[in-house]
Amino acid sequence: MMSAVAFGQTAYKVARTSDGKPDLQGIWIARNTASFDVTEIAEDPTIPYLPEALEREAKADRVDPIAHCAMPGVPRITYMPFPFEIMQRPGYVVLLYEYLHNHRVIQTTPREHAEGIDLFLGDSIARYEGDTLVIDVTNLGNRTWLDSARHMHSDQLHVVERYTRTAPDRMLYEATLEDPQTYSKPWKIRMTLHRINEPGFELKEQECVEGDDGRAIHPLYRPASKS
Protein backbone atom coordinates (compact mmCIF):
# COMPACT_ATOMS: atom_id res chain seq x y z
CA MET A 1 0.00 0.00 0.00
CA MET A 2 1.23 3.45 -0.92
CA SER A 3 1.69 5.90 1.89
CA ALA A 4 3.92 8.81 2.77
CA VAL A 5 5.56 6.66 5.43
CA ALA A 6 6.33 3.82 3.00
CA PHE A 7 7.83 6.29 0.55
CA GLY A 8 9.74 7.95 3.38
CA GLN A 9 11.60 4.71 4.00
CA THR A 10 13.72 5.40 0.95
CA ALA A 11 16.83 7.52 1.40
CA TYR A 12 15.19 10.50 -0.30
CA LYS A 13 15.46 13.67 1.69
CA VAL A 14 13.10 16.44 0.62
CA ALA A 15 14.98 19.56 -0.50
CA ARG A 16 14.18 22.78 1.32
CA THR A 17 13.36 26.25 0.07
CA SER A 18 15.42 29.22 1.28
CA ASP A 19 12.93 29.73 4.12
CA GLY A 20 13.15 26.10 5.19
CA LYS A 21 9.94 24.71 3.70
CA PRO A 22 9.78 21.45 1.71
CA ASP A 23 10.64 22.42 -1.86
CA LEU A 24 7.84 21.24 -4.17
CA GLN A 25 8.65 23.56 -7.05
CA GLY A 26 8.55 22.34 -10.59
CA ILE A 27 6.13 21.22 -13.26
CA TRP A 28 4.01 18.22 -12.31
CA ILE A 29 1.38 16.06 -13.96
CA ALA A 30 -0.92 13.24 -12.91
CA ARG A 31 -0.59 10.38 -15.37
CA ASN A 32 -3.94 8.73 -14.84
CA THR A 33 -7.51 8.94 -16.06
CA ALA A 34 -9.12 9.93 -12.77
CA SER A 35 -10.66 12.96 -14.45
CA PHE A 36 -12.96 10.50 -16.21
CA ASP A 37 -13.62 8.41 -13.12
CA VAL A 38 -12.28 9.46 -9.73
CA THR A 39 -12.80 6.00 -8.22
CA GLU A 40 -9.61 5.03 -10.07
CA ILE A 41 -7.63 6.86 -7.37
CA ALA A 42 -10.04 6.43 -4.46
CA GLU A 43 -8.70 4.53 -1.46
CA ASP A 44 -12.01 2.63 -1.44
CA PRO A 45 -13.59 2.59 -4.90
CA THR A 46 -17.05 2.68 -3.31
CA ILE A 47 -17.71 6.31 -2.51
CA PRO A 48 -19.75 6.45 0.74
CA TYR A 49 -22.77 8.22 -0.74
CA LEU A 50 -25.78 9.07 1.35
CA PRO A 51 -28.98 7.72 -0.28
CA GLU A 52 -30.39 11.25 -0.69
CA ALA A 53 -27.19 12.35 -2.47
CA LEU A 54 -27.51 9.49 -4.95
CA GLU A 55 -31.09 10.54 -5.58
CA ARG A 56 -29.95 14.12 -6.14
CA GLU A 57 -27.33 12.90 -8.60
CA ALA A 58 -29.79 10.80 -10.53
CA LYS A 59 -31.87 13.93 -11.19
CA ALA A 60 -28.94 16.18 -12.01
CA ASP A 61 -27.71 17.49 -15.34
CA ARG A 62 -26.10 14.81 -17.50
CA VAL A 63 -23.45 17.01 -19.08
CA ASP A 64 -20.05 17.34 -17.44
CA PRO A 65 -19.70 21.05 -16.52
CA ILE A 66 -16.21 21.18 -18.01
CA ALA A 67 -17.72 20.43 -21.40
CA HIS A 68 -19.13 23.98 -21.10
CA CYS A 69 -15.68 25.32 -20.20
CA ALA A 70 -16.43 25.57 -16.47
CA MET A 71 -13.44 25.42 -14.14
CA PRO A 72 -13.03 21.86 -12.84
CA GLY A 73 -12.89 22.56 -9.09
CA VAL A 74 -10.70 20.97 -6.44
CA PRO A 75 -9.46 18.24 -6.34
CA ARG A 76 -10.27 17.57 -10.03
CA ILE A 77 -7.96 20.32 -11.29
CA THR A 78 -5.02 18.30 -9.89
CA TYR A 79 -5.80 15.23 -12.01
CA MET A 80 -6.83 16.95 -15.21
CA PRO A 81 -4.45 15.48 -17.82
CA PHE A 82 -2.46 18.69 -18.16
CA PRO A 83 0.72 19.86 -16.43
CA PHE A 84 0.72 22.36 -13.59
CA GLU A 85 3.52 24.29 -11.94
CA ILE A 86 4.14 24.82 -8.25
CA MET A 87 6.00 27.95 -7.17
CA GLN A 88 6.81 28.80 -3.58
CA ARG A 89 7.64 32.14 -2.01
CA PRO A 90 7.81 32.96 1.69
CA GLY A 91 4.19 33.20 2.80
CA TYR A 92 2.81 31.95 -0.52
CA VAL A 93 2.24 28.85 -2.59
CA VAL A 94 1.32 29.45 -6.21
CA LEU A 95 -0.27 26.71 -8.30
CA LEU A 96 -0.41 27.49 -12.01
CA TYR A 97 -2.43 25.10 -14.15
CA GLU A 98 -2.06 24.85 -17.89
CA TYR A 99 -5.70 23.79 -17.99
CA LEU A 100 -7.81 26.88 -18.77
CA HIS A 101 -5.31 29.25 -17.11
CA ASN A 102 -6.54 28.17 -13.71
CA HIS A 103 -4.41 29.38 -10.84
CA ARG A 104 -4.41 29.34 -7.07
CA VAL A 105 -2.38 31.94 -5.20
CA ILE A 106 -2.52 30.67 -1.64
CA GLN A 107 -1.28 32.39 1.48
CA THR A 108 0.27 30.33 4.25
CA THR A 109 -0.73 32.79 6.96
CA PRO A 110 -3.38 31.13 9.14
CA ARG A 111 -6.84 32.63 8.73
CA GLU A 112 -10.50 31.66 8.75
CA HIS A 113 -12.21 30.52 5.56
CA ALA A 114 -14.34 33.00 3.65
CA GLU A 115 -18.06 32.91 4.40
CA GLY A 116 -20.98 33.26 2.03
CA ILE A 117 -19.21 32.91 -1.28
CA ASP A 118 -18.75 29.89 -3.55
CA LEU A 119 -15.96 29.73 -6.09
CA PHE A 120 -15.12 27.07 -8.66
CA LEU A 121 -11.69 26.51 -7.09
CA GLY A 122 -12.90 27.32 -3.59
CA ASP A 123 -11.13 29.13 -0.80
CA SER A 124 -7.68 27.68 -0.03
CA ILE A 125 -5.49 28.07 3.05
CA ALA A 126 -2.04 26.44 3.03
CA ARG A 127 0.25 25.25 5.78
CA TYR A 128 3.30 23.00 6.05
CA GLU A 129 3.44 19.89 8.20
CA GLY A 130 6.96 18.47 8.14
CA ASP A 131 7.68 17.46 4.55
CA THR A 132 4.07 17.98 3.51
CA LEU A 133 2.22 20.94 2.08
CA VAL A 134 -1.36 20.85 3.36
CA ILE A 135 -4.05 22.89 1.62
CA ASP A 136 -7.45 23.23 3.26
CA VAL A 137 -10.19 24.03 0.75
CA THR A 138 -13.84 25.01 1.32
CA ASN A 139 -16.40 27.27 -0.46
CA LEU A 140 -16.35 25.01 -3.54
CA GLY A 141 -20.05 25.35 -4.32
CA ASN A 142 -21.99 22.49 -5.88
CA ARG A 143 -21.43 23.21 -9.55
CA THR A 144 -18.34 21.14 -10.14
CA TRP A 145 -18.06 17.38 -10.56
CA LEU A 146 -15.18 15.22 -9.37
CA ASP A 147 -14.95 13.59 -12.80
CA SER A 148 -16.83 13.03 -16.06
CA ALA A 149 -18.62 10.08 -14.45
CA ARG A 150 -20.91 12.48 -12.57
CA HIS A 151 -19.50 11.99 -9.10
CA MET A 152 -20.80 15.11 -7.42
CA HIS A 153 -20.77 17.00 -4.13
CA SER A 154 -22.72 19.69 -2.31
CA ASP A 155 -21.59 23.19 -1.33
CA GLN A 156 -20.54 21.69 2.01
CA LEU A 157 -17.54 19.91 0.46
CA HIS A 158 -14.36 20.32 2.48
CA VAL A 159 -11.16 19.07 0.85
CA VAL A 160 -7.85 18.68 2.64
CA GLU A 161 -5.05 18.20 0.11
CA ARG A 162 -1.64 16.86 1.07
CA TYR A 163 1.38 17.20 -1.22
CA THR A 164 4.45 15.19 -0.20
CA ARG A 165 7.50 14.87 -2.40
CA THR A 166 8.65 11.27 -2.19
CA ALA A 167 11.46 11.23 -4.77
CA PRO A 168 13.13 13.90 -6.93
CA ASP A 169 10.55 13.28 -9.65
CA ARG A 170 7.58 12.01 -7.71
CA MET A 171 5.04 13.51 -5.36
CA LEU A 172 2.32 11.80 -3.40
CA TYR A 173 -0.99 13.62 -3.63
CA GLU A 174 -3.62 12.73 -1.10
CA ALA A 175 -6.94 14.41 -0.49
CA THR A 176 -9.68 13.82 2.05
CA LEU A 177 -13.18 14.71 0.95
CA GLU A 178 -15.73 15.49 3.61
CA ASP A 179 -19.28 16.55 2.80
CA PRO A 180 -21.98 15.75 5.36
CA GLN A 181 -24.72 16.44 2.79
CA THR A 182 -23.29 13.95 0.29
CA TYR A 183 -21.07 11.35 1.98
CA SER A 184 -21.75 9.29 5.10
CA LYS A 185 -18.08 9.63 6.12
CA PRO A 186 -14.90 11.32 4.84
CA TRP A 187 -13.12 9.43 2.04
CA LYS A 188 -9.72 9.65 0.45
CA ILE A 189 -8.08 9.81 -2.93
CA ARG A 190 -4.39 9.15 -3.48
CA MET A 191 -2.18 9.30 -6.57
CA THR A 192 1.35 9.98 -7.74
CA LEU A 193 2.25 13.24 -9.43
CA HIS A 194 5.16 13.05 -11.87
CA ARG A 195 7.67 15.83 -12.31
CA ILE A 196 8.38 16.88 -15.89
CA ASN A 197 12.13 17.34 -16.28
CA GLU A 198 12.36 17.80 -20.02
CA PRO A 199 14.78 20.73 -20.57
CA GLY A 200 12.95 23.91 -21.51
CA PHE A 201 9.51 22.42 -20.82
CA GLU A 202 7.04 25.16 -19.96
CA LEU A 203 3.32 25.58 -19.55
CA LYS A 204 1.55 26.61 -22.71
CA GLU A 205 -1.89 28.03 -23.35
CA GLN A 206 -4.85 25.70 -23.09
CA GLU A 207 -8.12 27.41 -23.80
CA CYS A 208 -11.74 26.34 -23.93
CA VAL A 209 -14.16 28.29 -26.12
CA GLU A 210 -17.79 27.31 -26.05
CA GLY A 211 -19.09 26.91 -29.57
CA ASP A 212 -22.25 28.49 -30.89
CA ASP A 213 -23.83 25.03 -30.97
CA GLY A 214 -23.46 24.94 -27.19
CA ARG A 215 -20.64 22.43 -27.26
CA ALA A 216 -17.19 23.26 -26.03
CA ILE A 217 -14.27 23.40 -28.40
CA HIS A 218 -12.18 21.46 -26.01
CA PRO A 219 -9.47 18.85 -26.47
CA LEU A 220 -11.37 16.24 -24.49
CA TYR A 221 -14.79 17.10 -25.84
CA ARG A 222 -14.19 18.23 -29.39
CA PRO A 223 -17.49 18.06 -31.29
CA ALA A 224 -17.68 15.35 -33.90
CA SER A 225 -17.19 16.49 -37.46
CA LYS A 226 -20.46 17.40 -39.16
CA SER A 227 -19.42 15.92 -42.50
Partner: peptide
Protein backbone atom coordinates in the same frame (compact mmCIF):
# COMPACT_ATOMS: atom_id res chain seq x y z
CA UNK B 1 -19.24 38.67 -10.34
CA UNK B 2 -19.27 36.92 -6.92
CA UNK B 3 -15.87 38.41 -6.03
CA UNK B 4 -17.08 41.96 -6.73
CA UNK B 5 -20.33 41.43 -4.79
CA UNK B 6 -18.41 39.81 -1.92
CA UNK B 7 -16.13 42.82 -1.63
CA UNK B 8 -19.26 44.98 -1.32
CA UNK B 9 -20.34 42.92 1.67
CA UNK B 10 -22.61 40.57 -0.25
CA UNK B 11 -22.91 36.92 0.78
CA UNK B 12 -24.78 34.13 -0.93
CA UNK B 13 -27.55 34.39 1.68
CA UNK B 14 -27.77 38.21 1.63
Amino acid sequence: SPSNLYRRGFKKDT
